[in-house]
Design a protein around this nucleic acid. Structure first.
Ligand SMILES: [Mn+2]
Ligand SMILES: [Mn+2]
Ligand SMILES: [Zn+2]
Ligand SMILES: [Zn+2]
Lengths: 151, 151
DNA sequence: ACACTATTTGCAACTGGTCGCAATTGCATC
DNA sequence: GATGCAATTGCGACCAGTTGCAAATAGTGT
């Protein structure tokens, strides 16, 4: 597993320990190509490593996020979702009506990011944002026909 | 109270009822010039109107937000914070190190907002965003001197 | 291989926020 | 100003996530 080496290095470098809990949480996230909730991560880890506690999952996720290996966001599904932090990173447009989630490129945020740095000296962490609003389908549908939304 | 009329109109127009709970929640928010947590709102309302339930506060806040009278955001203080939705709206830069909160103008987001609409047909709700990162002070401090942060 | 200890884990209690449901009430109509 | 009823509230149970603390363990040194 290519992620394993990166994990060990990052942990060592910051003075943390490599525990089976952390290792297995990262493995589950690295193996998935969707956003995963903490509950889902816990369930998947337990298939291979049954003695894992809820707190350990949350604490591992927090650490992996600090180390930059994992990224999280609230996509409006009632719980936070986690994903491997791949480069270049991406963001999401979430429709409040049909709940669709669309991926967008980080480049759209680069102007804003530069302006915040030049105007305020503020270095914004803009990885994995969720922007809520109304998607094209739902805008046009409600404009002409006041019917119920669908996914 | 100038907000009262606006509330009554908005409620009626959308087929909602004017209850003392909703009225007093809005009054507390309108009287404050800071961000308030739900807990703080509950405490302030109870000074005048002691029989108010936690659920009623959250449900009133949800409705007032839908009606566009109130806006909320998570500024990283462990609970969501509410504020009267004044125009033009504003956003915040939150420093992860010193926890400082800085206000910025909505105009910084207008290019992004237009691009999302033109490229994806997505109408983004961009009122009252919180952007996390590192402020100027904390960037320069950690660059030259690896000391503890302050507020 | 063994001892040492600071870090990490498991657990249970707690917190902020949501939800289902029965009791209450705003408001429309007479 | 009384009646009727859908909208709203209060309440308690619940859910996702956090925290304090005692027990366990990764990693260092011998
Ligand atoms: Mn994503
Ligand atoms: Mn604000
Ligand atoms: Zn949509
Ligand atoms: Zn700072």
């Amino acid at each position: 597993m290519t992620q394993h080496l990166e994990l060990v290095q990052s942990l060592r470098q910051a003075g943390h320990r490599l525990t089976p809990q952390r290792e297995s949480v990262l493995a589950v996230i690295a193996d998935s190509h969707e956003h995963l909730s903490a509950e889902e991560i816990l369930a998947r880890v337990r298939k291979r490593y049954p003695y894992l506690n809820k707190s350990a999952v949350y604490r591992s996720l927090e650490l992996l996020t600090e180390l930059g290996l994992v990224t999280l966001t609230d996509l409006g599904h009632g719980r936070v979702e986690y994903e491997l932090h791949r480069h270049p990173h991406h963001h999401h447009l979430v429709c409040r009506k049909c709940k669709s989630v669309q991926q967008i490129d980080h480049r759209l945020f680069q102007n804003l990011q530069k302006k915040l740095e030049s105007d305020f000296g503020f270095r914004a962490d803009l990885d994995h944002f969720a922007i809520f609003g109304t998607c094209r389908k739902c805008s046009t549908r409600t404009a002409k026909n006041p019917k119920r939304h669908s996914h």
